[in-house]
Design a binder for these strands. Structure first.
Lengths: 216, 216
DNA sequence: AATAAAAGTGAGTACTCACTCACTATCGGG
DNA sequence: CCCGATAGTGAGTGAGTACTCACTTTTATT
């Protein structure tokens, strides 16, 4: 079986060939945007941190906002693509017999990615309220597709009688709150606490399954 | 029985006597900070929106940041005070016989407040990553106290055998994720969807109770 | 080695920023 | 009715701000 993550990587050809300096600029921008926010970060500051003249930034990115977008957009696609491409097939092919299998696979699968991209995700979450284009782009390219897929998946397991017959959007909200709540506390709020990840994930998934169990 | 909210109001004497212009400044600042963020909002803009000279802002607030703090701090205290003052007593006095009673009371109690203060809470959440003083102030004045109280409350219901014997912090995380997840989707992400609030709260609380039920 | 395209530079531009200050207007107590 | 205090003003200040452009250096292709 081929490496599916690699497949996705190539399919979108994200962050293609970059010069050394361009990589420095991106790294510096990510650092500063995450720490101080887009608006409070000056292009001068980014240039200094990247060891580059200010003009160099604008050679590659027409505006400061374009720089922001070039950081956030590829991450967004990489984060969501598996849900659209892989997960649904695995569900429909009965690779995940139970909803629990599916949830555990999803957490496992996304954990590494999240861990490696905390800063970019932080930027994305912090900036989304202030940049309508960002929200639109998200909804257009991934948001709506992801929701459609998730609805199909939930419906599938509801029909199999594995989860309670609440409105699908409510099930998505409860599942999302639980999983995102875990990731946010784990990597956002208390990244330095000593976590027993295996135990926490286990408690979280069991909590979710018990909570969503059908009324007997 | 006296009105406890009023008691809290008076106890802290929050947002005391303000001139008409000062109220305008606050309202304008809240509007702009929530919409564009603290950093992207200029004092000139606030002054114009408030119908006031720019100097007037600095007569009342030494710096722009002081203006931000004067908006966010009282809200923070008002939001958390009930947990510290009222809720714990009600629990220990057996006013809430079950954990479910407690959770429902807490949601009911905080809903109105949240609804009336969405913008300020939005500002608080958006700005906390960029202002260490804000985080410190929060932890010092309310955060730590609230967590201590919550731990006592959870422990109390665990001893009564009403909820599962997971680590207390895990229970707090799961409960918090579920409730905050509801409020965030309800008032933050999809405030304009047509919500059947009663049904949603009911599903949410039932989900939480089933998820936290002790192993039989 | 010649050459054109691409990458990199940094001083300069027009503009905005938070904040100041000398001044005026309003108000409440004796 | 006066007076001190508080509230309100808006032009002014120096330090940024994102972005430009004429120029130099590096790279790839023949």
């Amino acid at each position: 079986m081929i490496n599916e993550d690699q497949m996705i990587e190539e399919m979108f050809n994200l962050d293609g060939d970059l010069t050394e300096r361009q990589k420095n600029i991106l790294a510096a921008a990510i650092e500063s945007f995450a720490e101080k926010g887009y608006s409070a970060t000056s292009t001068k500051e980014i240039a200094q941190k990247a060891g580059v003249a200010e003009g160099t930034i604008f050679r590659h990115y027409k505006t400061k906002k374009e720089l922001l977008m070039s950081i956030v957009t590829p991450m967004m696609i990489k984060l969501m693509a598996p849900i659209i491409i892989k997960d649904i097939n695995k569900v429909l092919n009965h690779d995940h017999e139970t909803f629990e299998d599916f949830v555990r696979a999803m957490i496992d699968n996304r954990r590494k990615f999240l861990k490696n991209n905390v800063k970019i995700i932080k930027i994305f979450i912090q900036e989304i309220p202030f940049h309508p284009e960002l929200k639109e782009q998200f909804m257009e390219h991934v948001g709506s597709k992801v929701f459609t897929r998730l609805r199909q998946i939930i419906e599938h397991y509801q029909e199999k009688g594995q989860i309670i017959n609440l409105p699908i959007d409510t099930v998505i909200r409860l599942t999302g709150s639980t999983i995102i709540g875990y990731f946010v506390t784990r990597y956002g709020i208390l990244p330095d606490a000593d976590w027993d990840d295996e135990a926490e994930v286990d408690s979280t998934v069991k909590f979710l399954m018990k909570g969503l169990a059908p009324e007997q």
